[in-house]
């Protein structure tokens, strides 16, 4: 039977001491879909990504990547995902192309140099910096190499942890177009973000997270950005009113 979701969380829970960072998350991301998780710092977005990567062990529930239980077989699960963090870490003494080549070889990609150069071009990296060491790259350039790595790996699942944070509008727009390309090619994308407008731009569905809980899951096509913002702010207001500090 064909699986319904490429990425799936069922009752996924993570606690750090007395704090519940993620509380019984139920979420599925299908192929060709981008689910954006919106929320303030500490809402549980990054914890969700880390649980899908197997960097954290869940205290309850399970995360699955193409049906593979991440906690049981994290290496198998990771080989099926591409991960783009807030700040892509590259080897500074390798060039952009060499970094891409390395990550491509690591995942058994076997692309030619021409193909990899094309991927860097598609990700928006200026041609004249491809052969420069990444120690000279701006954050935006590194993110673009990160996207090219994700493209080269051909992973059917993408986990993006605030990849647009700190980018100038042009670089953010370029990155969003690349993510859109991957989505259109059939990848399942789970993206944590603070940016409602970018989330609306590329998201299929938008999840709002508060205090470790997914409090709303919206259809991005059915709402415009200002409506999403209004819903988000309302959740924030309710959450603040219900907080112990406010009650006091």
């Amino acid at each position: 039977m064909a699986e319904r979701f490429a990425l799936e969380a069922r009752g996924l829970t993570k606690r750090f001491g007395d704090t519940t960072a993620l509380d019984a998350l139920d979420l599925g991301v299908a192929a060709g879909e981008v689910v954006c998780l919106l929320g303030a710092n500490g809402a549980g977005k990054t914890t969700t990504i880390n649980l899908f990567l197997g960097f954290l062990q869940p205290d309850g529930g399970e995360a699955r990547v193409h049906g593979v239980n991440v906690a049981e077989d994290p290496l198998h699960a990771r080989r099926q995902v591409a991960y783009l963090p807030e700040s892509v870490a590259l080897y500074p003494r390798l060039t952009g192309l060499e970094n891409l080549e390395f990550f491509d070889r690591l995942s058994g990609g076997g692309h030619s140099v021409t193909e990899l150069t094309e991927l860097l071009d598609r990700s928006g990296l200026p041609t004249n910096v491809v052969h420069r060491r990444t120690s000279t790259y701006s954050k935006g350039m590194r993110q673009k190499v990160g996207i090219a790595i994700a493209m080269a790996r051909g992973a059917r699942c993408l986990l993006l942890d605030e990849p647009l944070s700190g980018l100038d509008p042009s670089a953010a727009g370029s990155l969003c177009r690349s993510i859109g390309e991957l989505r259109d090619a059939g990848s399942a994308v789970l993206m944590a973000s603070h940016d409602i407008f970018r989330a609306k731009e590329i998201g299929t569905r938008i999840g709002i997270m508060m205090g470790g809980r997914l409090v709303n899951l919206l259809d991005a096509a059915a709402l415009d950005a200002s409506e999403i913002e209004a819903i988000y702010l309302e959740h924030m207001r309710v959450a603040e009113q219900g907080s112990p500090e406010r009650a006091a």
Partner: peptide, 12 residues
């Protein structure tokens, strides 16, 4: 530098 994390995310 964070490259270890990047590596591990590829299933190394």
């Amino acid at each position: 530098d964070g490259t270890l994390r990047q590596l591990l995310a590829t299933g190394v």
